[in-house]
Amino acid sequence: MIYDDESAKKLFLEAKRVYQDRGMLKWVGFYLSDHTAVLAKDSQQRSQINKEKQQMSMEEIGVLLQQAYVKRSRIALQLSILDSEGDFHNDLIGKVTGQRENLIFINEEKQGILQLTMEQIHHAEIILPSKIFSQKNKEIDE
């Protein structure tokens, strides 16, 4: 059957009026395991609540930052800044790369170089390598 422009236009408009779009159902087949894994990980991160660690004094934080800098150790920092729900953000983990006046420079593993002030830090702890950490735990248990 041959359609002229007018009859083709009428046929198209009729099909458009009658067709019922399934909405998002038509896209379900496109979700791969990679997509669902990313969605599950994102959901888990959103539901994770970071508990408040013990508030440390400026002197204690300064000593730990100095030790981490001298020994080139990794350090975990919990900042005093809260998220929109009033919970603490994930710890910043990285190495202290320097200090100038009131600023401390941290090479954070995920975000790169960050500038912090001592007042922003709520809690600090040096992260020991897992091999040394497991050996020290065995010595403590015995």
Score class of each variant (00 low, 15 high):
Met1Trp: 14
Asp4Val: 02
Glu6Ser: 08
Ser7Pro: 00
Lys9Cys: 04
Leu11Ser: 13
Phe12Ala: 14
Leu13Ala: 07
Glu14Asn: 04
Lys16Ser: 05
Arg17Pro: 00
Arg17Thr: 12
Val18Cys: 03
Val18Ser: 07
Leu25Tyr: 09
Leu25His: 11
Leu25Ile: 10
Lys26Pro: 05
Trp27Met: 10
Trp27Tyr: 15
Trp27Leu: 10
Gly29Val: 03
Tyr31Asp: 05
Tyr31Met: 13
His35Leu: 02
Thr36Trp: 14
Thr36Gln: 11
Ala37Gln: 08
Leu39Thr: 11
Ala40Cys: 07
Ala40Arg: 10
Ala40Gln: 05
Asp42Ala: 11
Asp42His: 08
Asp42Gly: 09
Gln44Ser: 10
Gln45Glu: 12
Ser47Phe: 09
Ile49Trp: 05
Asn50Lys: 11
Glu52Val: 08
Glu52Ile: 07
Glu52Trp: 01
Lys53Asp: 15
Gln55Lys: 09
Met56Tyr: 10
Met56Thr: 10
Met56Pro: 04
Met58Thr: 15
Met58Pro: 13
Met58Cys: 14
Glu60Met: 11
Ile61Thr: 08
Val63Thr: 04
Gln66Leu: 09
Gln67Ala: 09
Ala68Thr: 04
Tyr69Cys: 01
Val70Ile: 13
Lys71Asp: 09
Arg72Val: 02
Ile75Gly: 00
Ile75Gln: 02
Ile75Tyr: 00
Ala76Val: 03
Ala76Trp: 00
Gln78Glu: 03
Gln78Cys: 01
Leu79Ala: 01
Ser80Tyr: 06
Ile81Arg: 15
Asp83Lys: 01
Gly86Ser: 01
Asp87Trp: 01
Phe88Met: 08
Phe88Arg: 11
His89Gly: 04
Asn90Met: 06
Asn90Lys: 09
Asp91Arg: 05
Ile93Gly: 01
Lys95Leu: 05
Val96Ser: 11
Gly98Gln: 01
Gly98Thr: 01
Gln99Met: 13
Glu101Asp: 13
Asn102Lys: 14
Asn102Arg: 15
Leu103Arg: 15
Ile104Trp: 14
Ile104Leu: 15
Phe105Tyr: 11
Asn107Pro: 13
Glu108Ser: 06
Glu109Ser: 12
Gln111Ser: 15
Gln111Gly: 15
Gly112Lys: 10
Leu114Gln: 07
Leu114Ala: 03
Leu114Gly: 06
Gln115Ser: 15
Met118Phe: 12
Met118Gln: 14
Glu119Leu: 14
His122Asn: 03
Ala124Gly: 02
Ile126Leu: 04
Leu128Val: 08
Leu128Cys: 05
Leu128Gln: 13
Pro129Phe: 06
Ile132Cys: 00
Ile132His: 00
Ser134Cys: 03
Gln135Ser: 08
Lys136Ala: 04
Lys138Gln: 03
Lys138Cys: 02
Lys138Val: 02
